[in-house]
Structure formats: C-alpha cells, structure tokens
Nucleic acid binder design. Structure first.
Lengths: 348, 348
DNA sequence: CTGAAAGCGCTTACAG
DNA sequence: CTGAAAGCGCTTACAG
C-alpha cells in the first residue's frame, strides 16, 4: 500500500542518478547549478529529472546544509487581528519575496507583553529558522532575545537601537501632507496623534513640524500629542474632542494615521462640522476602506507590500553575510527608508 | 556566557548521550517518550538534556520520520487582505492548535483564479507539508489538485463534494437571527445577499426561510438574492437600494453577512431611514469594527479561532489515519459544524 | 568534468 | 530495559 502523501512513490536523487547513468553527486551539482558539469551530462540529468518528476526534498537538503530554509515572521497578535490590512499586506510582500528565494515564511504572533519563558516562539527554541522578520512595535525584550541568540533579524515599520530595519519615510510623508494643506490655503494646521513614543509616529510629527516651518507658518493653535493609548479609531474619536475645544479652531488637521483620522472624521460629523468645508483632514497609511458615508480620506500612502519585500531582501543579505545596494531607496547605515505618496481625496 | 544558538556549538543527541553515558538511541527514546526506559535512566537523560540545553533539530528528525512537520494554510490573497479580520482569526486558531501538536503552519495565498501551472504553492511541489488547510472559497481546481496528490486536507468555511470540512452552522445562526426579529414583533423580514452560490451563504438563506416558516410568516415582501459579486460592503450598499424600491418596505432585513449589512446601514442612512426605528438590521459573522456613527450591528457571532482549531485537530487525525470524536459539535460524515451565537446590539 | 565516500542529526527495527 | 547499526535524502570536500 502506497504511503499517504506519495502516490506510487516519489523519486529521489538515486532514481535520477541511476536512470541518467551518473553519480548522485553529479545530479546534486546539476540541480543546484554548482560546479562544472558538461553541458551534455547536465541536460541529460535535467531531462531525466523532469521525466521522473523529481523535486529535491527540503528536509534532506537542509540537514547537510545546516540551514532550515525557514524564516520567522513575528508580529503582535493584536496587530495581526487588526481590522485594517496593514500588517497582512506587509506579510504578503514578505511571502512573495521569500518565495523567490526559495524560503518559507513561518508566521507567528506574540502577545503585547512578551515573557520569554512563556511566549518564545517554538521556531526559536527548535532553531528552526535562519532569520527573523519582526513587524511593528513589539516588546524590546523579544527583539533583544533574538539578537542575543545571534539570529539575523530585520525590523519592519519599527526601530530599536541599531537593529537593521526597513521603515516608512514618515518624515517625507508628513511633509507631503503639510505641503498639500498649505497649498490649499490652510494656515492653521493642527496635529492629532496617540502612542507618540512610537518612532514612526514621532517621525511623522517631526515631518509635520518641518513642513510648518518650511511654509513659515507660526505655531498652530492646537497640537494633540498623546503618548498613551493605541493609535486607533477609538482613540482618535476621543482625542479629537480636544480639537474642538482649542482656543481657536484649526482649519485643517494632520493625523498620525488613518485610524485616528477616521475617529476624527466621526467626531467632527457628530458635532456637525463639515469636512472638508469647515475642517480639512489628512491621514497616513492609506488603509481606510470603502465607505459611502464619510468623506473619503486624503492620506499618505504607504507601500506595504514593498516594505515586506525589501525587508525580506535585506534579511537575505544578512543571512548570506554580504551587503547589497538599494538603488531606489535611501539607506542610511542599517536603515532602509521607503518613500510614500500623497493620495488626495475628498477630506481636504 | 555561551548563547544557546551559536555559542561554542549547539548540543546534539550525541553530546547528551555521551554525557549521560548512554547510547543515542536511548536519548531518542527518552526525548520522545517512546519504548521502555527505566525511570532512573530516563531522568538522568532528561537532566543532562536540560543542562546542555538540548533541543532536537527538526530537520534531522523529519528525515528519518519521512514527514515534514509542516502544514500548509491556503487562502485567497483577496480574502487575506480583506479589511475584516475574519480569515486572520481563523489562522490564529490554526496556529494555536498546530503549536500544540508541534507542527508549523505555512501560510500561502493563491489568486482567485487558480492556474496549476502558475500558482501551485511551492510547499506542494516540494512536498514540504504533511497536510493542507484551505480557508474560504477557493478555486475547485486547486482543491482537487491537493486531493489528487493524496495530501490530507480540510476545508474551512467552505464545502466541496465530500472533502472534509469544518464549517459554521449557518442554518442554525440564520434561524437565531430570524427568531430574534420575530420576537421583536417583525412580520415582514427581508433577506439581502450576494454571491449566493457560496454554500455557506446558501445555508444562511435556507435557515432564514426555515425561520420564517417556523414563525408561520408568509412570503416577505422582498428577498434580494444575487448570485453575483462579492458579499462585501460595496455590494451591500448597491443591492440594498432594491429594498427601498420593493412594493412594500420590510420592517427588518437579515443580511448574508456583516459587510453587506454595513452597506445596507449606510444606504439606509443616506435615504434618511432610521435604524432600528424604521428598519431593523441583523448581520452575520461579527466582524464589524468599532464605530461611533452607525448603530452597532446585531449579528450572528462566528467563533473564528475555534473554526481554525477544530480544522487543525481534524487534519491531524487525517494525517494520523484515525478518526476522533467532537463531543460538543455536530459531526455528520465528513463535516464538522460549529455553532454560532446571536449578539444583540443597537441595529435591531 | 565526474565518482566514491563521509557526514548532517536523528529514528527505528533488531539484537541482546 | 538498552546498545549497535542501518538508513532517511541530500551536499560537499576529496580524489581522480
């Protein structure tokens, strides 16, 4: 009786070698395009391999190669289950690039508060990955534990010390947003953000301030910068009340991200304030979904798949032990910065 | 101090055997709790293993065991990147259960229209999985290609022929929804759905009709059942116009899912129809996110993580070649049906 | 350019 | 109850 997975039987390197009349080492060389094999032998082997439907078993390859062919993709469970497809898109980009390199991606989540003794991903204990990708803000203990284990790692949309990271060019994006509002004639542009200790959000605030400065605008009448809370819809809804209590109401608001902007949009609506007539709103991320009710959101688009792709590429270099160049991206030391694009819609 | 990974070197079964003064086969037996090893030897080995921080290498185990320890999780890319965290939650449940069994989950997406020669997941070509989980509606060619390769598979929230599947008890959920509306005094309850060829949605329609029948209600004045389109917000928004054009306007609508219900909610709002006063609305899935603007949605909650967990359990049985029982779940032939729960909120 | 051989780290009959 | 040995399917020096 045939084994469950295999049909008649799966052919191995031996079968190919025998049928092609060569040694298994030659088959191996051919399959991997290594060493010098005569053209004739090579094509013969390749043909036989095709005929026999031979595909090298990964488990067998990995043992002598002392690698696993797997890379771990880690993010916080609450981020993964978030409603906007932000991290899922990043993952998709990673997957795509990994496929290209013949690597598998093991997606694993960790809780917000990481405890090494409880939550260490199994692929780490079993050393079943060659490298790790970490998306979003995660407990620094976790990051350090990976680094401490000397496993190559790349952070995505987050930064910690000198760990390699692929990030959004937040500052550039924020400047784009401000410039746009300025060009629309706004002179009092507020900021609204939470969780502002997050490096990415901090950069957006900086870009915003630079933008104001470049336009020679004075201090805005209102700048809501909370270090607390998650930068989400609920927080945006609540915090934005403060905007309507400011000494003078701004004519435009740049939000730290789309979720917060959505909260602001709804708060404005509930107070009878029209967008964009009474108040222009710009977000960041481009994750707002279709909605026939709210004005569609002007935002700074983040290329999420691209973030994932670049991170995977970067990690691959790290694992291979050699550096590469990123023609179209700014790369300062250990940071790859991915540019954004302004998407103008109804809210501004 | 040496890090476990790469310090001087990672300890192997040999190191443990030598230090414990036994053969490597004994170590293997102990680590896997197999065979009969004296208590004394066993604890000694275990202690040494702990001391040496020994963790068996997966790649090395899998070779002689002729298994991979991986299971593939496949879903459509457009489903994965959807805004509601429906499939991501299912995946989380899968991951959780897989972890428990010492299995890894490889998440891969395929396009809506599957072409075997272009999109066959690599883990299939390389036979790098012991089983496959498929979530949501995917091209039947894909499903058949897995089955044809004799790889154990379990469908989640979808059905095709006699393939094993873990599904939502859609009919029961729909009945719950209708009963609730009836208890609120509604006598003219409409239905709104798209992509109604989907088995799950078809079941919801059936449950709805059974519910009407049980309550001895006549034909509703309106039943919008489209076979086309995706069952999403946009479709819901458009289709729901028909409801307001019906001969008589129903007093309540049961929607095929939450996304459609959200579309209806917004269409109603744009026409100045109050929910729930003028129109009660009930959805299905429980994926609507926080929103301070629309009335919160009464819905039939689906336990997404549980779907994933059960599917993984089921697949595990299939891979092991023996069946098990599901004490709390109806299991008819190859189908495991997971019950739902009615969540009453503002929209009804 | 190609073959024979050792080895990756483990599991599993098979003898004791 | 425990050890010696074969083998999983491949890669990679090392000789020719």
């Amino acid at each position: 009786m045939a084994s469950p997975t295999s049909g008649p039987k799966r052919s191995t390197i031996k079968d190919v070698a025998k049928k092609a009349g060569v040694a298994i080492s030659t088959v191996s060389l051919v399959m991997n395009g290594k060493g010098f094999v005569s053209n004739e032998t090579s094509t013969r082997v390749l043909n036989v391999a095709k005929q026999l439907n031979y595909v090298p078993r990964q488990a067998a390859r990995k043992l002598p190669m002392q690698s696993t062919g797997n890379i771990g993709f880690v993010l916080r469970a609450d981020h993964f289950a978030r409603s906007e497809p932000f991290y899922t898109r990043i993952f998709l980009g990673t997957e795509f690039e990994a496929h290209f390199h013949g690597l598998y991606v093991l997606l694993t989540t960790i809780p917000q508060k990481f405890d090494a003794s409880l939550h260490t991903p199994r692929f780490l204990q079993e050393r079943n990955v060659d490298g790790v990708l970490i998306a979003g803000k995660v407990d620094s203990d976790f990051i350090e534990s990976i680094a401490g284990a000397r496993i190559p790692l790349v952070l995505i949309d987050y930064q910690l010390k000198d760990h390699p990271a692929v990030v959004i060019d937040n500052q550039q994006g924020a400047k784009l947003a401000v410039e746009h509002l300025v060009s629309k004639g706004h002179e009092d542009i507020a900021f609204l953000g939470a969780d502002m200790l997050h490096p990415s959000l901090k950069e957006r605030l900086e870009g915003y301030r630079i933008g104001l400065n470049d336009a020679r605008l004075g201090k805005p009448s209102c700048e809501i910068v909370s270090d607390q809370g998650e930068p989400d819809y609920g927080t945006g809804f609540e915090l934005s009340q403060q905007i309507f209590e400011c000494s003078k109401r701004p004519t435009a608001v740049f939000c730290a991200n789309d979720s917060i902007a959505m909260g602001l949009l709804d708060q404005a609506a509930s107070q009878g304030i029209r967008v964009p007539e009474d108040l222009a709103v710009v977000g960041f991320d481009d994750v707002a979904r279709e909605d026939h009710f709210r004005p569609s959101l002007t935002t700074v688009r983040v290329y999420k798949e691209q973030l994932g792709e670049l991170a995977m590429k970067y990690l691959n270099e790290l694992m291979a032990g050699f550096p590469a160049t990123y023609p179209n991206f700014e790369r300062r030391s250990h940071i790859v910065r991915v540019p954004t694009e302004l998407i103008i819609r109804e809210s501004s």
